[in-house]
Amino acid sequence: MAAESQMEQLIVENVMKELAKRGLVGNGSQNQVEMPEKGAGSQPRIESYQENGDEALTIPDIAGIWVPNPENIEAIKVMKQTTPARIGLYRAGARPKTGAMLKFMADHAQAMDAVFLDVSDEFLQRMNLFSVDTMAQDKEEFLKRPELGRKLSPEGEKIIKEKCEKSPQVQILVADGLSSSSIEANVPDVLPALTQGLTAAGIKVGTPFFIRNGRVGVQDHVGRVLNAEVVISLIGERPGLVTADSMSAYIIYSPNEKTVEADRTVFSNIHRGGTPPAEAGAHLVDVIKRILKAKASGMKLNQ
């Protein structure tokens, strides 16, 4: 009996090792199951290790039709193709079905986490970006006092003066804005495409860095401190329930005290379901070349 149970244990261990190799179960090392890229922030990544080897539960798909014996199921199929709205999901009494409720909660949770969690230190290290703060002390202050997110803290200003190359043609900055998860989802593709594209075109690119609790307007402060000809910010958009991972690029030519919002060139909706990040990077290189040539951005560029 003892030999048998030893054998059993051995088999189990081998199976688990094999599954781990194939990435089907976690073993606490690098072979974790890939989680969807929503892990914004410094929260511990959820371990996917399963004691019994079962697959993890997933949030119900609401693409289906849940109406029992509908008058015309084909018509509902067509309706669902015409809109991403949450329709055809029927009801429990007058309330939503459990699956629809869980899907809504999961979507809102992603949006909340995108706004309220920070971009992780591990991510910034991997992207080789150092981090500075704005005048906003924390997320709550950042959300309540928009003007504080438009100015670097004195410490932040000192750090970029020390670490960044002065008077670049293009200064790239990354700011969390209203979605940290959009930064983690898109910057790994956008940033290299942008840097390499600009460098290949003979354009002098400054030292990129990350700004915590940053708003769009902080690029004016950065531009003035570093004497940059063009500043481009990669910044998280306000999340919707459909995606929490949408990022924008705001580009300003020679920002100064008189800069107004209409002076910025904006390229929004960068995410897998919108403009894919690598494609966005290549496009932004072209936009920046035009801006450098015209010596203007925003409305002035289009005149």
Binding site: R86, I87, R91, G93, A94, P96, F104, D107
Partner: peptide, 24 residues
């Protein structure tokens, strides 16, 4: 709003379900 999720204005408002529920 369908499912409480306004897919155009990107905010959450009372749903068709909520409407019927409050009446009941």
């Amino acid at each position: 709003v369908p499912g409480g999720d306004d897919i155009m204005l990107s905010y959450q408002d009372t749903s068709y379900h909520d409407d019927a529920s409050v009446r009941e």
